[in-house]
Design a protein around this nucleic acid. Structure first.
Lengths: 103, 103
DNA sequence: CGATTAGTTCGATGAAGATCGTACTACGAA
DNA sequence: TTCGTAGTACGATCTTCATCGAACTAATCG
C-alpha cells in the first residue's frame, strides 16, 4: 500500500488570500464540508458533486495548492483530509466560522 | 447632514459563499483591513488602493451586497463600516481569523 | 499480460469578473 | 446658479476560471 503525499504548501507558505479564494466557490465549499464530516479523510470520488471527475480533480488541486487540504495516495485511491490544525493555527476561528454557517 | 443607508442584505440574508467570494480578492481584503482599523467607519476615497475610483466603487458594492460592510451617506461622502456584529454572529471567528493573519 | 478502476492532465470553450474611461448624480460652497 | 468634490453607473475590454471530453498514468485483479 503506497502512501505518497501530493505537493502542497508548508504551513508558513499558506496565504489567506489563496485560502479565501479557494473557499469562495460553491463546489469547493461542498467539498470541505464533506471533509469536515470525515476526519479520517475521504476519497475524492466518494464526495457527491454536481460536476465531472475532471472538474472535481481541478477543485481538489486548487484546495490542495491553497493549503486547505492534503491528499495522499493509497493504492489507486486518493484520500483527502482537511488541514485543520494548520488552518486553525494560522487563522483561528476561520474554519469553525465557516462550518458553523452550514447553510 | 444626510444619513441614508445603501441597499444591503439583512443579517439572515447573508450567505457564506458570497462573503467568502467577496473576501477572496486582494483589493477587497485590503479594504476590509482598512475598515477593521477604523471602527467609526471610513470614507471610500480615503482608503489607499492601487485602482481607479470606479473600480473601488465596484469592490465596495460587492462587499456591501455580500453583507460584509455597510455604507451610509454623509453629505457628499460615503462612510463604510464593517458589519462586525452581524458577521461575528453568523460566522463566529471568521473575521477575527482573517484579520489575525495580517500578512 | 490485458482489463478494470481511480484519478490526473491537457486543450478548448464559455461565463464571470476586474479594470478602465467617460458620463452622470448629489451635495456643498462661492 | 455655477463650480468643485465625492462617488456611482454604464459600456468595453481583457483576464481569470469553471467546465467538459478525451487522452493519459498508475495500481490492482484476473
Amino acid at each position: 500500500m503506497t502512501r505518497k503525499a501530493l505537493p502542497q504548501p508548508d504551513r508558513e507558505e499558506i496565504r489567506v488570500e489563496s485560502v479565501l479564494q479557494a473557499l469562495g466557490e460553491p463546489v469547493r465549499l461542498q467539498i470541505i464540508r464533506a471533509l469536515a464530516d470525515a476526519p479520517e479523510g475521504i476519497a475524492c470520488g466518494e464526495i457527491e458533486l454536481p460536476v465531472t471527475a475532471s472538474t472535481r480533480a481541478h477543485h481538489l488541486r486548487i484546495l490542495r495548492e491553497a493549503g486547505v487540504l492534503t491528499t495522499h495516495t493509497e493504492g489507486t485511491r486518493r484520500i483527502s483530509t482537511l488541514r485543520r490544525e494548520d488552518l486553525d493555527t494560522l487563522y483561528p476561528g476561520l474554519l469553525t466560522g465557516i462550518l458553523t454557517a452550514r447553510q
